[in-house]
Nucleic acid binder design. Structure first.
Lengths: 100, 100
DNA sequence: ACGTTTTACGTAGGCCGTAAATATC
DNA sequence: GATATTTACGGCCTACGTAAAACGT
């Protein structure tokens, strides 16, 4: 199953242009980044990066995926925002007098 | 962290109108559905359902979240589609003569 | 009293970090 | 030879299922 962490890791690698850079940004080990991308490529059935040890470049599929991955991540952020913006149930005792 | 499984479980409960119905559709135990919704509500900081043991109704926040959750799930599906549609790297040995 | 949701318990699978190996410049 | 990615190993945490309890109709 494709996971959000897969997607954000993928975007980080694409933006940083390197696995180690993404690992630093995400505060995780490079090995985790490598495995995550590997799993994502396996899930999607497409190679996302052309990597030759010192060069990491997006494949054509990678470019297309990058766009939609960003869209998906934004959509999930929107979930948080809409949930936060939405008023709660008319009579929800658990958030008391939060709204004026 | 909000997970895609959280979202699809939430949508299933909202559409089925019951936890057990969602559990049946998702082929999982009711307890798992209950915990997943609980976790999602905790993550979002909002109650999504008003449940009184025999009635499950979306709260106001639940309605708003349902919309954006569907959008997010569709966006993730789009990731799969775009990745699948996209041509691979010009010279990718691993998927040989897949494209005419 | 029945049906549905929730909690408790124990187990299985996945993810991550550390460390070692591999490959490229 | 140095840097960056990948693989191996061990541990931790999370998620699930089964079973039992709580709640409302």
């Amino acid at each position: 199953m494709v996971d959000l962490r897969h997607l954000s890791t993928f975007v980080a690698v694409a933006e940083e242009g390197s696995f180690s850079g993404a690992a630093t940004r995400l505060r995780m080990a490079q090995s985790a980044v490598s495995r995550t991308i590997r799993d994502l490529e396996r899930d999607l059935g497409k190679q996302l990066f052309d990597r030759s040890t010192h060069h990491v470049a997006l494949t054509q599929a990678g470019h297309a995926t990058l766009d939609s991955a960003r869209t998906a991540l934004a959509a999930v952020d929107t979930v948080r925002l809409t949930a936060g913006d939405a008023g709660d149930c008319i009579r929800c005792p658990h958030d008391g007098a939060k709204k004026p």
